[in-house]
Design a protein around this nucleic acid. Structure first.
Lengths: 223, 223
DNA sequence: AATCTCCTTCAGGGAGACTTAAGGTTGCAA
DNA sequence: TTGCAACCTTAAGTCTCCCTGAAGGAGATT
């Protein structure tokens, strides 16, 4: 039983490449080459959507919004670099992941497989772990019932860790996802944000562990 | 059981160089010096193909296509040309990676190793063997359910062995992959790290066996 | 037995991480 | 538009972690 991928991509070359690679990896692929036609397709019929935001006709973001309202199918977004605002809006609209162009095919594959393998964590889901309660939809964090005020970046960083409790998340991945995708993983900005998150979370903040030379991880409660 | 590389390269000097480097890193190499002969070889018998597109006889792209139709063996393509058209066609035909000449041998090695590593990552992020549970994605190791704290290098070394259980991994390969790629394999640094890994893993640590004069291997459980 | 190769401990140093403070940017309100 | 407040980023100083080379001893190989 292979997974069914819905690809919305207007660029013929790129689309061809992606389809070839996905089929090569055993996926069933439906390729929509036109933004308007995308609205005639039911995302519920697929296991995952790959959506290029740079569409000429209907705006990719509109399609994303409509898909999100009609189905829970995870959406993986493609976007060009230097489009940070678009990326932020896409994630806010409930995109589950994004890949920045240009990318290597295997990178896209890895993201797709990771997404399909993982239990779905949609915007709207709530993560409860230890004394923490993280509402991804409302973007609200509570610590032992007490509301904690986090800024956008602080919240996204915590959420990134909380969505894979115990897993080490690389600095680069965090920078890509939360800060500018076209920025090198160097610099101390991440550290400053995590420093604040830790302080704001008090005891629970100690669960944010540094993984030396790699990134950060959220330790499971009581460990 | 070392990885078997099929090299299709007509340039005698370059081919000689590549073969030397690959063998130095513990790979078994079959070197085909002629495009036509390449069609008589079965890619399924190898773990990875390195294919030079600039062949005099049969066109490299044709070979790529035929290989792709007969096996799932990953193909890494070499080309002197930096033309995107060639690259695009190669990738569309299913090439897994692309290296432009001229390149440093270390670069090719790194790509090969990255490629060989990837299927394992895809097959399942988690390696379970004996009492050990090694989550490559999350960079978490558990021994009989207990979390074990490993540093970056310690984890990478253990992972390198665990990805090919039972196989001897040469010191040079480990140094190349985990420590600095351009460093001589001499020095006792590896020993120190493995010493610590063994200690941290307790009983299971005894499964890390020294292969005298070669490197290390992770013994299968209960052996 | 001689001679490699490997194991382990130890300390030094360097790379990476933490924190504070200040400057810059963004977004909102008047 | 202007001003303000919240927030993000950079810089700098300090600290911590852990990588690495040295050295003596143990084990393997001849």
């Amino acid at each position: 039983m292979s997974s069914r991928i819905l690809l919305v991509e207007d660029d013929k070359n790129l689309g061809d490449q992606i389809v070839t690679h996905l089929k090569n990896d055993g996926f069933e692929v439906t390729w929509i080459q036109d933004g308007h036609a995308a609205l005639d397709v039911d995302p519920k019929q697929h296991d995952l959507v790959v959506l290029d935001l740079m569409l000429p006709g209907a705006h990719g973001l509109d399609i994303l919004k409509i898909y999100r309202e009609t189905a829970e199918t995870p959406v993986l977004v493609l976007s060009a670099r230097n489009e940070t605002s678009t990326k932020v809006r896409a994630l806010a609209l409930g995109a589950d992941d994004y890949v920045t162009k240009p990318f290597w095919p295997e990178e896209l594959l890895a993201r797709i497989q990771a997404r399909l393998r993982r239990p779905l964590l949609h915007a709207g889901d709530v993560i409860e772990t230890g004394a923490l309660r993280i509402d991804l939809g409302a973007r609200v964090v509570e610590n032992a019932g007490q509301r904690v005020d986090l800024t956008r970046i602080e919240f996204d960083l915590l959420a990134a860790l909380a969505q894979r409790i115990g897993a080490a998340i690389t600095r680069q991945a965090l920078v890509d996802r939360v800060l500018d995708p076209d920025r090198e993983g160097t610099g101390r900005t991440l550290d400053v944000h995590f420093s604040r998150v830790r302080k704001k979370l008090g005891t629970e903040g100690a669960r944010i562990a540094t993984v030396w030379g790699v990134g950060y991880r959220l330790l499971p409660p009581g460990a």
